[in-house]
Structures are given as C-alpha cells and as structure tokens.
Design a protein around this nucleic acid. Structure first.
Lengths: 224, 224
DNA sequence: GCAAAAGTGTTCAGCTTACACCCATGG
DNA sequence: CCATGGGTGTAAGCTGAACACTTTTGC
C-alpha cells in the first residue's frame, strides 16, 4: 500500500547574465537520461529540512549560500522517475548579477548556464518545473521585490528596468518606470557613477530593505 | 545518509458556514497528540500522484470530490512528527456553501468544523499549515476567482460580498463592490430571487467562467 | 561633432473611494 | 407600519499610460 518513497529537492537557479535570464543546468552522466541536461538536485539527508537540503545543493553547485531561495512546488507524479517512486520538492534561487555565478569544483562540461527560455530539452519532468518557476518569478515580480535579488548591491536604474523587462517579457517606459521607483522611496542614490557603454555615466543606487518593509505592511505593490 | 522518509498529504478544508470561514478538523484517537485536533490527511499510496492522494483524502473525509483543490506547500522539518521522518505536502480545498459540508461515515466526535481563526491548538505543525493556507487564500482572493468556490452555483451579491469580507477581514462598500462586479461582467443574473431574512428578496446570479477566462488572459484583477 | 545611453514633466483617461436614501417583503 | 436587508448614482482624488527632447561622455 505504501512502498518506500524517495524525496529529493531540485533547484531552478536563475541569474541575469549577458542581459538575459539564465538557468543553471547539469549534464547527467548516468542513466536514466544519460547525456541529457537536468536541474541540479539530490536526496534529503537525515536531520535536514527541505530548506536546508535546497541550500546545501545550491552551495554545492554554485558556492554561494546567502541568496534568495524559495520553495516552488512539489512534484509527485508516479511515473516521473523511471527508477522508482521519487517525490521532489522544487526550489528556485536568484543569483545576483554576472559575478557570483561560478561553480567551483565542477567542470564546465557537466554544468553550465543556459538561457531560461531557450534551453535544451530537460530530463525527467524538469521542463515542467522550469516553466513553473518562470511563471512564479513573473508573478512575484509584481508584488514583491524579488527583482532586486537578481542585481548586485549597487546598480543603475537602467539595470533594474532591464530585470523587469527581461522577466516580464515586454518593454517598459523609462520615465514611468523611474517615477514609480522614485515614488516608492526604496532606493538610495549613491555618489557613484558607472559607464557601461560609450555614453554618459549612470548613477548607482542601492536597495533600502527597511523602507520596503514598511511599504509591504501597507500592501503597496509594484505594478510596473 | 538517506534513511526512509514517509510522505503524506494533509488537507486544509475550508467552507463558509454560519457566515464565517470554517475549517474541517479531525480528533486524533491515537498517540502522538491523542485527543488533539489535527488536519485530515494520510499517506500516499502506490501509483497515486500527490494530487490524487489529496483528492482521495478529501473524498474520504467529506464525500465530495468536484471542488477546488490546490497544493499549498510542503513541510519537511525533521522534528515535525515525533514518530519519524515525515514530509507532508499540504493542500487546501474550498467547499461550496453550507450544503456539501457533511462527512458521511464519520462520527461527529471525530471530525467537525471549527472557525478557521478561532480553532483549538492543533497537533504537529498543523497550526502553521492552517495559517499558511489562510494567508494564501487571502492573497489569491485578490487576483483570482477562488472566492466563487466558496459559494453554491447560484448566489446573491450579498453572499459574494460576505465571502470577500470574511476572508479579507474588513468591510466593503456595497455600492462599490456591486459596481466592480458588474463591470467585470463575469456574473449572469438569473430570473430567480431568494429571501434569507425578513426582507426584500435578493436576485440570484451565477458565475460565468467563460467571461472570466478572457479577462484573466488580459491580466485583470479583483481589487476589492 | 557624433553615437549612445542618461536623465527629465505633462496631460488625459479610467479607476478607486466616500457617501445616503428609497424599495420590497413578511410579520 | 415596522424591521430587515436589497438595491441604486455621483463627485473628487489618485493612479497608470502615452509621449520627446536635452545632457553627458568618449572617440
């Protein structure tokens, strides 16, 4: 009636790289789905919560640990793993900018970044999981500050706008975007400027979490 | 490293009864937490998906099966069940009106409805789960039509407003509420009237799912 | 001086909110 | 005729969307 079930966590690790949303995939070395790309993940260990297991896998795969991580959904179709009954709780993580995304200790052939929407076909039901994560990310962008989790501590307003445009999949009006961000008052302008292209330098800002907490309690949204 | 883990589903079954939001609880007959109230739930069976297990438990507990049911979250803290390692995927269900909520085959001492917010202290981490479900329900009310799932097929506008007021925990303006519902155009007025109290009869309406699908694709929300 | 991205205001339409009275019914 | 809930409109303020030009810089 209740044969043993194995529980894993799988990770959808997102980062904004090369101006697009990318996801970290690993190439499977063994059957089933040998040679296919899949989400990083693994079994829960004794005495480990699901969150802890997810954070451990994240650290093993990327070397980072202090990043945004959220439980996504639990997938438990009986046939999803040909080896037997495996229920997986999927998490998604947001890595910050082009910098952190390195994976020390793993060779480039076994793990690499792929464009989140233009990725190879994945093993198991992992395509379903990534699509689910993309949808969640899109929705969360509108009523939380997850967007800031994809940027380094200091960023320009154009970079912030690009996060929103990339994930929402549509262009936003620069003036409206800036006015709304300014109105929220959750950004602190810094006395620093950077130049990305052959043009006028852009001012750097940083996110003020304290201001945001107050707003969130009042139910203020981010309708970009 | 990976001792066997047991997987259960637990159900937060909501219904609007006696003008308040209630939740179905069962009294535990055995240790641990003997005599305490807890969420209905049970182990996944062979060849059964999580959704199927949840729907089976729901049917076993209430006799109904064709109702709103959604995965909530998966709880997997190592110490959450004193008997061993048990990971549970929680679901919440919305039963429709005061009618369906009967539980044939189970005696009243072992299962009953409680006010969702004024309930006894629950076994395991079930208080956490119910709180989580209440929060989810509140949020979903604002951008989906879950609210309609708590009403019978035919309902009055006052009943609909009461759903929103009960779950949101605040009063709404009758005229504004009605104007907004009318504007959405997702309700079909019927040629039927009912009287609940000693007053003028109220017109019955039914929800038009087709109209709603169109609106949802355009991203129209329910900002009541 | 030119290419490239940064930065900046105003107007209009639509939506949200606040607010009070008459109506139909059964007892 | 009274108690109870059903039903209806308007005005003011706010928010969201559309829209174009000047500035700074390196080459």
């Amino acid at each position: 009636m209740t044969a043993p079930i194995q529980v894993t966590v799988d990770l959808v690790i997102f980062a904004l790289r090369e101006r697009e949303l990318q996801v970290l995939l690993v190439r499977r070395g063994i059957a089933p789905f040998e040679g296919h790309w899949a989400l990083p993940g693994g079994f829960i260990r004794d005495g480990e919560s699901l969150d802890e297991a997810a954070r451990r896998e994240l650290r093993e795969e990327t070397g980072v640990s202090d990043v945004y991580l959220e439980q996504l959904y639990t997938f438990g179709e009986p046939g999803r793993d040909p080896r037997g009954r495996v229920v997986t709780t999927a998490y998604y993580a947001l890595l910050t900018g082009d910098h952190a995304p390195l994976m020390p200790g793993s060779d480039a052939a076994a793990a690499r970044w792929w464009p989140a929407r233009a990725r190879p076909q994945l093993a198991f039901d992992h395509d379903l999981i990534v699509d689910y994560a993309l949808e969640r990310l899109k929705n969360k962008l509108e009523y939380t500050t997850v967007g800031f989790q994809l940027l380094p501590k200091k960023f320009t307003l154009t970079q912030l706008q690009r996060v929103y445009e990339t994930i929402l999949g549509r262009e936003l009006d620069k003036r409206n975007f800036r006015r709304k961000v300014a109105l929220l008052g959750i950004l602190k302008p810094l006395d620093e400027w950077v130049r990305e292209g052959p043009s006028r330098p852009a001012q750097l800002y940083r996110f003020s979490a304290k201001r945001f907490e107050k707003l969130r309690d009042k139910g203020i949204l981010f309708p970009f």
